[in-house]
Amino acid sequence: MGVKLEYLNVNKKPLKGRDFLTLADYTQEEIYYLLYLADDLKRKKQNGYVYEPLKGKTLGMIFEKSSTRTRISFEAGIYQLGGTGLFLNANDLQLGRGEEVSDTAKILSGYLDGVMIRTYSQEMVTELAENATIPVINGLTDLYHPCQVLADLQTIKEVKGSLENIKMAYIGDGNNMVHSLMFAAAIMGMEFTAATPPEYEPDAAVTEKAEKLAEVNNGKIQVVHDPADAVHEADVVYTDVWASMGQEAEQAKREQDFAGFQVDGKLLELAKPDVTFMHCLPAHRGEEVTADVIDGKHSVVFQQAENRLHAQKALMVALMR
């Protein structure tokens, strides 16, 4: 299934004013719309075409968590679209001094045309969106990372030619990446298997929701504890760091607990011959993945990282134009 290119008609604004908090809030058709729009914006940039549909618009970017890809891609993206991005460190806002999230949302709605927030609590993002009258984009929380996964879908579609009949295996921690990848696979009708140590499984409620989404979209969601089972005949193998931001104190314990969950050449051999390796970055070579895999011929991690720019530009155009 796909969405015809006429969905890119600028007079059609199917997502205008919407929030982007989790992929589970979007239909398959809406996600395809965003992906085709991202492809179109990528071609425009590659061809040197100046396209500024957000001229005069301002995006506020709230950061409680530091970032490389999220900040640069959003800031460059809004600029390329003709708008302005304002970097807002949470410690510099009254949020950092105890102002109610609802009050901040109402204030920002009077100044800005959209807000991107990268923080710890999904509840904060939800409360911000509930009280704002402008689009709110989830740049990352401890529960979800939907912007990254939108770029991941764009990358898979570029490399494989389609999202149909794709089997994806994720190896590692059942974190925010797994949650968003499960939702994406379920909505797009893909087969997704996460292999985690028993005590690091994805959130049970999120898994249950993904399974229900998969039922109506002909997808399949599984959680196993053997990386070999997950990777067998996979089209895409994905991993992430074992200790995410804020979990640095657990690093030593996690290195022990994740023994056997490293993606190396031997594990990758169990996948299909044309397997694609993905990682959301930053990566720790020699821990969750070996250097020969992440720097090898199957890896698309830098194409994947670049697509953050194009996918997020599509989001901003669709929501803020």
Rank of each mutant, 00 (worst) to 15 (best):
V149N: 09
L150A: 15
A151S: 12
A151Q: 08
Q154Y: 14
T155D: 14
I156R: 08
K157C: 13
S162I: 07
S162L: 07
L163P: 02
E164R: 02
N165T: 11
N165Q: 14
K167L: 05
K167D: 13
A169N: 13
A169M: 08
Y170T: 08
Y170C: 09
D173A: 07
D173Q: 01
G174L: 12
G174M: 13
N175V: 11
N175D: 15
N176G: 12
N176W: 06
M177W: 08
V178S: 09
V178C: 12
A184I: 09
A184W: 11
A185T: 13
A186F: 13
A186G: 13
A186C: 12
A186R: 04
I187G: 06
F192Q: 11
T193A: 03
A194N: 13
A195H: 06
P197V: 07
P197H: 11
P197I: 06
P198W: 01
E199F: 02
E199K: 08
Y200R: 07
E201F: 11
D203M: 06
D203V: 11
D203E: 15
V206W: 01
T207H: 04
E208C: 00
K209A: 14
A210G: 07
E211A: 07
K212Q: 14
L213T: 01
A214E: 04
E215L: 10
E215P: 14
V216C: 12
N217A: 06
I221E: 07
I221R: 03
I221W: 03
V223A: 13
V224K: 14
V224W: 15
H225P: 02
H225G: 04
D226S: 07
P227F: 02
A230V: 00
A230S: 08
A234H: 10
D235Q: 10
V236F: 00
V237R: 01
T239H: 06
D240F: 02
W242C: 04
S244P: 06
M245S: 06
G246A: 04
Q247R: 04
A252V: 10
K253V: 10
K253C: 01
E255V: 13
Q256Y: 12
D257M: 10
F258Y: 13
F258D: 11
V263W: 01
V263D: 00
G265Q: 13
K266W: 02
K266P: 09
K266M: 13
L268C: 05
L270P: 05
K272R: 12
P273Q: 02
P273F: 03
V275R: 10
V275I: 04
V275G: 09
T276D: 05
F277M: 03
M278S: 07
H279C: 12
C280D: 12
L281A: 06
L281R: 01
P282S: 05
A283Q: 12
H284W: 11
G286S: 07
G286C: 04
E287W: 02
E287S: 10
E287P: 00
E287H: 09
E288H: 01
A291R: 05
V293F: 03
V293I: 01
I294N: 06
G296K: 00
